[in-house]
Design a protein around this nucleic acid. Structure first.
Lengths: 332, 332
DNA sequence: CTGAAAGCGCTTACAG
DNA sequence: CTGAAAGCGCTTACAG
């Protein structure tokens, strides 16, 4: 933990510069000294200090990620995938759970790029706009994913309005007339799409269950409470994510509601687990492998081409509707 | 992105040192210059460079975490919790998915401490032993959680043998005579506890389903395949984690197996979702809030008390058995 | 209260 | 092929 180039230099009788070169592999240096230095360095247990190395280059070898809920399975999966990709290139990921000062924090740590999802948080969008403006001339890569695109940043566009619209349309076409929507802790653009589908048909606006603290247990209780007070029940439910689906379905079941006979159900997200529910659940969401892959490609390109900003890179991922038993159309 | 202390110094006519002090809040400096410097720094859009700051102190303000599967819900939750705690103290988390060189990588990045779980991976344990030995005199904090304790490191002990034993004992006492155990991609100490419970009763050793690639889908298929080839069925099943439970249960259901009538079932982990299955699933696992909290306390202590190594800190979390309908004892 | 200087560990033109 | 020197951006004794 303590051995420095200086120590190796002293031990070998070489200069610090020579040792540095012997170890770095990219300058010419005589094979003999190179081997010798490497051997001694190994013996001494030398571990290069990457932070010191970065000091010179001005880059930190770190990518910042703004997120709002790592706990979510999809977020975790995405993060895990990114970490592996980054790690293969010796790049670090600095995760910042969104707060007032999180972007500032990332900047203070001199991240080489920022990735951000959760663009439904207005403060986050605003902060990203601010730094995008501030850093524009500077060629600082910001890559977002979501429905909102900020000029000056790259994006993987996920049309949440479309995904809500698509799923609601399917449910209405299957016979639903009144929809209930669980929204988790926060409204997102997906509700807009659902509303639009209702509007087009002259059907009543969907009812929303908005939950303060969107954990599995609290969503379960929110739905329980809704059911206890409801005079008439909707004939369809859209569950906002995979994680809460178990809680919501349990609440429905305990209320004696059968799916799809009494109520059709679907998840407005796709973590690949819809088919493992009973009955299998219809899902409408974005392929997260595709998403993460696009994200990574843009990121890699930007890291490898600093100073060549050019136009914003924008990729789109379409929402995919997977129809399963839970939204069977004949009420069988 | 470009403003340095030097620039502020030039602009204010002060020395770099004075500017540094005005901004750092801990040295005495006249109120007027302090205010002035801060105002100017703000106007210039100064963002301190934390990495440069750390250069001097020798600490990186980063904690390394070795993990093997961030995708797992519990790992993600733990990580999220830790990140929030660390972020409040402006400490970074460097996550390293375990690989040959991951510890070396953390060390190169001069992490101030290492946290590691997944102690069922022999190579990881070996590597941790090596660096623990190498860094011992150096007061480098290593905090692990799991069943194995490495001398010279702190630990939150999770007795996996005990958790397996406890759950198997419960199932046997409920009437099971032959157990099937899904192990995910890797054997862990939990199987030892299950075997021990069988041994004590003179019952046959549990059958194990070991899966190469433990995803939800592959566990589903692994169980399907097992069921297709089994001559006689076990009367109890232990599922190794929450994530795979949905797949395993679906496979059982498709095979016409009713729980608990035909087969009792339980999860050897507790992510707080057991009660949301149909029927509610018995679980035996460790309280992850407690675990993470203990982890954080040890970590915080170590970071705040460098150079005061003393004895290893060891905390224990007991496995908790939560009995639910899926293991009802009278076969009703 | 403020400045000049040394230093954190490394890299990299620039000379030789 | 190798060394002396400057520098990355900041902090911190040490003088004044």
């Amino acid at each position: 933990m303590k051995v420095r180039l200086k120590d190796i230099a002293a031990r070998t009788g070489l200069s610090i510069a020579a040792v540095s070169r012997a170890l770095s592999d990219k300058s010419d240096i005589s094979p003999e000294t190179k081997d010798m230095v490497r051997r001694i360095a190994g013996e001494m247990g030398y571990i290069p200090n990457i932070n010191a190395r970065n000091m010179k280059s001005g880059r930190s070898g770190t990518v910042g990620m703004l997120t709002s809920h790592l706990v979510n399975a999809l977020t975790a999966e995405r993060t895990s995938y990114l970490i592996r990709k980054l790690q293969m290139r010796n790049i670090k990921l600095l995760i910042s759970e969104f707060a007032d000062n999180s972007i500032e924090w990332l900047l203070q740590n001199r991240v080489d790029a920022i990735i951000a999802g959760s663009m439904f948080i207005p403060e986050m969008v605003q902060q990203l706009k601010d730094i995008s403006k501030r850093c524009l001339g500077n060629d600082f890569p910001i890559i977002t994913f979501g429905t909102v695109h900020i000029p000056g940043t790259d994006a993987v566009k996920l049309d949440y309005i479309e995904s809500g619209y698509k799923l609601a349309t399917h449910l209405y076409d299957s016979g639903c007339r009144s929809l209930l929507v669980t929204c988790g802790g926060v409204m997102s653009r997906r509700e807009d799409g659902i509303r639009q589908a209702a509007l087009e048909r002259g059907l009543p606006m969907p009812e929303l269950i908005l939950d303060k603290e969107p954990t599995l247990a609290s969503e379960y209780h929110a739905v329980k409470e809704y059911l206890a007070n409801a005079k008439t029940l909707p004939d369809g439910i859209i569950i906002h994510n995979n994680h809460s689906a178990m809680g919501v379905l349990t609440a429905l079941r305990e209320h004696g509601i059968r799916i799809p006979q009494d109520m059709r159900a679907a998840i407005l997200e796709d973590a690949g687990i819809g088919q493992y529910f009973t009955p299998p659940l219809t899902t409408c969401g974005f392929d997260h492998f595709l998403l993460t892959d696009q994200l990574w490609k843009i990121l890699e390109y930007r890291l490898d081409h600093p100073g060549a900003r050019g136009a914003d890179i924008i990729k789109s991922i379409p929402p995919v509707l997977k129809i399963r038993e839970s939204s069977a159309s004949d009420g069988k």
